[in-house]
């Protein structure tokens, strides 16, 4: 019981972190059909700048804020310098974002050094709750709570506000939105920045969770996010949450029972989805 509960919490926490990364990817894709291969780079930049601030000030909240700002700024830079020049050309977009990913990854090594850095959760999130015979690690619960909060916030923004309406309409038909006098390029930039901020947030939250950060983890983790985006349906926000939880749980349980196959199991889920439901589990609706 204890084992299953802790694996579930573990899986949910991983799932939430992947979700934060995948949410930006899927919205950006839905809106502009750009698949941002540099997303993992934003993730590690969030992690490293956050952890750096955390080292210096010892305040985890401040670390989160700095990571989010890093994400917003990098998102803006990526959109303006990398995506915009090749706007409308798919192949070039895909090629260029991967190049930027590697540049971001190597720049991390230049700025922060190439070695693995250890990170532990802040004091107020350390330790665990005891619930009967089940031990719940505080930090993991914290991630899960943050993840769900963000999901519902974004969900409400998408469903209930005018901005959300524009974004959803843009996902369905961006030409039409443009015809109605809305600057879709501006909307895209904003969504891109928010997506980048979510990726950076995911990075800084991931740091104390995994205990270490290193430059290559951006690419590794973004592969999981890609898998999630495929499973959930490209462009589907809700789909990415469910798929992320699915992948997180599968990852957690396999890592315990058959560690060698923990990446393979997600590939397997993706393969099955691609064969039987290539549009993803959730179809993109408004």
């Amino acid at each position: 019981m204890d084992l299953i509960a802790s694996l579930t919490v573990n899986g949910l926490a991983t799932g939430m972190l992947i979700f934060l990364l995948a949410a930006g990817l899927t919205l950006i894709f839905g809106l502009m059909s750009v698949l941002n291969f540099a997303h993992g780079g934003l993730f590690i930049w969030g992690a490293y700048t956050g952890v750096w601030i955390y080292y210096v000030t010892n305040s985890f909240l401040l670390a989160i804020i700095v990571a989010i700002i890093t994400g917003l700024v990098l998102g803006l830079i990526t959109e303006r310098l990398i995506i915009k020049p090749v706007y409308g050309n798919h192949i070039q977009q895909i090629l260029i974002t991967l190049g930027f990913m590697l540049v971001l990854q190597e720049l991390i090594k230049v700025v922060f050094g190439p070695d693995v850095k250890a990170v532990s959760p802040p004091a107020w999130l350390e330790g665990s709750f005891q619930l009967g015979d089940v031990t719940l690690i505080k930090y993991r619960l914290f991630i899960i709570v943050i993840g769900f909060l963000l999901f519902f916030t974004i969900y409400l923004i998408l469903k209930k506000t005018r901005i959300g309406l524009i974004v959803r309409a843009g996902v369905m038909n961006r030409e039409m939105v443009q015809t109605l006098g809305i600057n879709i390029r501006f909307v895209f930039m904003a969504v891109f920045m928010v997506g980048a901020a979510l990726a950076a947030l995911s990075g800084v939250l991931h740091a104390p969770y995994s205990g270490v950060i290193y430059a290559e983890m951006g690419l590794e983790f973004s592969i999981l996010a890609f898998i999630v985006v495929v499973i959930g349906g490209m462009g589907s926000f809700t789909g990415s949450l469910f798929a992320a939880i699915l992948v997180g749980l599968a990852q957690a349980f396999m890592a315990y029972y058959v560690p060698a196959l923990s990446l393979a199991v997600n590939m397997l889920i993706m393969t099955v989805v691609l064969i039987f439901r290539p549009q993803g589990l959730f179809k993109v609706k408004g």
Binding site: L35, L219, E220, I223, F226, I227, M267, M270, L274, I275
Partner: peptide, 21 residues
């Protein structure tokens, strides 16, 4: 066979993931 019937992103993603595997 898995991805080439889909949009070009899928092949790029799946090959990246496979190579990681």
């Amino acid at each position: 066979i898995l991805t080439l019937r889909l949009k070009s992103h899928f092949y790029a993603m799946l090959t990246l993931a496979f190579a990681g595997l």
